[in-house]
Every structure is written in structure tokens, then in C-alpha cells.
């Protein structure tokens, strides 16, 4: 678990229940978790919290997930290549298409079981199995 502990996950979701749910699962699995309530806050947070993986919701106030991803991918190389996992209730084929077009690396639909979340986060962030 030593290496898992060094993987840092930034959860970007406006719903505190969702953040709590992710944080609970991820911290028990040994990840370090930080939170942002929307895209704007996430862009700021990334300057001080270089994350190994972003978990991004789509529908958020101030800056939604897709705008955030498009903005992120144009940033300085230090943060622009941060892997991003979109987890959203918008689960139509066109929604999934839109997340990839915006620069998301993977897409999962809500609701999501905690063990599934941890499995994907471990994989996408490169934590040991």
C-alpha cells in the first residue's frame, strides 16, 4: 500500500454526498484525496495539489466538467496531462462521446459501487494492484 498512499486524487463534484462517498472509499483504499466543488476551484486546486487522477462530475455550477476538461487540457504541461475520470449520471452515448471529446480519459456512470470505483481509480492512477 505504500505506493498507493502516494497517489493523489482530486474529486471535483458539487454534491457533498458524492464527495463523501468517493473520499470514504478512496481513503480506505489508501489514496490521498482532495476536493473541489466545481471546475474553477479545481483549476486553482491543481496548482497546489498536483493530482495523479481527477474524478470529474459533468453538471456543476460555475464551471461544468466538460468546460473544465477542455480548459485543463490547454494548460501548462505540468497539469494539462493529468488523467481524468468522468463519473456522471449523463450516460447517453452522446454524453460519453462528449466527455471523450473534451479530453476525459475514461467514463463511468453513476451510481457506482465503491469497490468498482476503487478498482478503476487504482488502474487509472497507476497504483499497484
Amino acid at each position: 500500500m505504500a505506493e498507493t498512499a502516494s497517489k493523489r486524487i482530486l474529486v471535483i463534484d458539487d454534491a457533498s454526498l458524492v464527495r463523501l462517498y468517493y473520499r470514504d472509499a478512496l481513503e480506505r483504499a489508501g489514496f490521498e484525496v482532495a476536493e473541489a466543488l466545481n471546475g474553477l476551484e479545481a483549476l486553482e486546486k491543481l496548482l497546489v495539489f498536483p493530482a495523479d487522477l481527477l474524478i470529474v462530475d459533468i453538471n456543476m455550477p460555475k464551471m461544468d466538467g466538460l468546460t473544465f476538461l477542455r480548459t485543463l487540457r490547454r494548460q501548462d504541461p505540468a497539469i494539462s496531462a493529468t488523467p481524468a475520470l468522468v463519473i456522471s449520471t449523463e450516460s447517453g452515448p452522446q454524453d460519453i462521446e462528449a466527455t471523450h471529446a473534451a479530453g476525459a480519459n475514461f467514463y463511468l456512470a453513476k451510481p457506482l459501487a465503491q469497490d468498482v470505483l476503487v478498482a478503476y481509480v487504482a488502474m487509472l492512477s497507476g497504483a499497484p494492484a
Binding site: Q75, P77, A81, T82, P83, G103, N105, F106, G126
Partner: peptide, 12 residues
């Protein structure tokens, strides 16, 4: 194409 896009794919 944006460098951030495909570079993130490489990292993943």
C-alpha cells in the same frame, strides 16, 4: 489535438 489531451492518454 491538444498536447494535454494525448499526453494524459499516455499517462493513463
Amino acid at each position: 489535438e491538444m498536447a494535454g489531451r494525448w499526453a494524459s492518454a499516455g499517462r493513463v
